[in-house]
Design a protein around this nucleic acid. Sequence first.
RNA 1: GCCAGGAUAGCUCAGAGGCAGAGCAGCUCACUCGUAAUGAGCAGGUCGUGGGUUCGAUUCCCACUCCUGGCUCCA
Length: 587
Amino acid sequence: MSQSGVSKQLDRDEKLYRIRHSTAHVMAEAVLREFPDAKIAIGPPIENGFYYDFDLPRSLTPEDLERVEEHMREIINEDHAFERAVISREEARRRFADQPYKLELIEDIGSEEDVSLYTQNTFTDLCRGPHVESTKQLNAKAFKLLSIAGAYWRGDEKQKMLQRIYGTAWETPKELRQHLDHLAEVEKRDHRRLGRELDLFSTHEEAGSGLIYWHPNGSRVRLAIEDYWRAEHLDNGYELLYTPHVGKSWLWETSGHLEFYNENMYSPMVLDNAEYYAKPMNCPFHIMIYKTQTRSYRDLPLRWGELGTVYRYERSGVLHGLLRVRGFTQDDAHIFCSPDQIEAEIREVLRFSLQVWKDFGFSDIKAYLATQPEKSVGEDADWERAVGSLIKAIDAEGLPYEVEEGGGAFYGPKIDLKIQDALGREWQMTTIQFDFNLPERFGMTFVDRDGKEKRPYMVHRALLGSLERFFGVLIEHYGGAFPVWLAPVQAVVVPVAPAFNEYAEQVKSELRAAGLRAEADLSDARMNAKIRAAQQRKVPYMLIVGENERNGHAVAPRLRTGEKEDAVAVEQFITRVQRCVSEKALI
RNA sequence: GCCAGGAUAGCUCAGAGGCAGAGCAGCUCACUCGUAAUGAGCAGGUCGUGGGUUCGAUUCCCACUCCUGGCUCCA
């Protein structure tokens, strides 16, 4: 983007910020018309819109929103100026005497400062601004109230629950339209909807919430992902492990999970007077394997990966399809190395991650670096060294990144990678975490050149995150139309009439013999219906076969994009798809 | 967990204090058909679970379970 392009973008962001903030104020005024006794809390602009929290005598209904919108349009069209005033804290306290939430906010403002107010029409809010100059700068046709939600005062569940109204606001009705279309597209791509429509997975409340059942189609995709994952890891210097699903309390006491992670763990099972816990993480198991031998510096680095299934208790309210579950398979790995290897190792992990993301069709990636929090274990010097190597690695890979000061776990700094999907949404997937804690707790050592026992560095790394969550993101990214190498069914052979069933079956067998995932639709539906069915399943290739194709040992491909191709020999088609698979082409 | 909304056929959804509905999917039958739905017929439900009101509840009331949207954006 050019320099002026950048500043234009900033201007626009600033403009939208004011519009949204001001629209929130107009909404508050409108709500006060409906509920004169309403207590108002906060109402900031947010991405794509705004919200305002209210303490109301009764619950809002969708009809209330319509009336509030109506009032808002009136206020906007009446063209009221937004007027700023600066008053003393004393005066502000008097002014908002019947607004307890505002009084609390006033107390939070530095005692030296005066406070500013913004007034439009009958409504005055404690507010830092800025705002548009007048309500006529808002467009009565470019905003919409979207939803009602509960929200704790200050996001604290010990505080009172308020009612939040979310809205969206734009400069023009066209932009609003585009945003609403975008929301509709998000809904259409919802992995839960596509999961059902494409017969990929299910969940069963009666059998346990937050636990995923992979159907044959979903499992086909997962197998493709796992096969790729294993092959890439073996090619990139990893060894693969399998470890148990449960471990005795000794393990979790030693690791510290019982002390620090208890509320996320499933309750123990008692066997032979011992308590066994379903694992919430794989790391202690990998450490057990590490400790089966005296490790030499010559053995390091050790890169050990595992598709490890873990169970974590998540509160029922936060469960969400594949994206937030109670049982999932992490594509985990632990790297054990000497301090002088750490920088190269981190860089290698990053490089490897980016390559994998590219193969799955994601290239917009941002790094988030989380540094030492107030409470932490490990020497400050180790933290510094670790953070330094993280930054060097990020720079070396040329990734854009942001620093989250103090955002690391107590046991070490980390890099998270967020990927952007086809709809521009960011998802946190990859995490690369230092651990100064576990090597200590388990007394891990390696023998260095000088014959002395030293503590290895340990890095946890989940690349895709979890297969469940990754699958959810993958479904939404592709809207269910997976690239050929991942598609559950790569080709459906469609005979134009029953007379060609036998040939269709033969073609299917040939495709399968060539390693492709193929089906022949021999149902008694008509050809058009078969095409439609395959199209709705988002199968990449439909192969139409009739008299001509049978005579020429050929197929006439139709792509799911609707494109029709001339007939080609079966062998030729196979070669083409195999290339497409090996190149992981995004078609 | 908390707030709000929801739960009716496999799916999407309509309905109403008095025999439970549609479309799609499924099953059966017929059909010689060239690039997004051939036609006819059949079957399918303890109306989320438990309790209450009522002559009668899937419908009204209460509780519970689960699902959905939020509970991160800080005047």
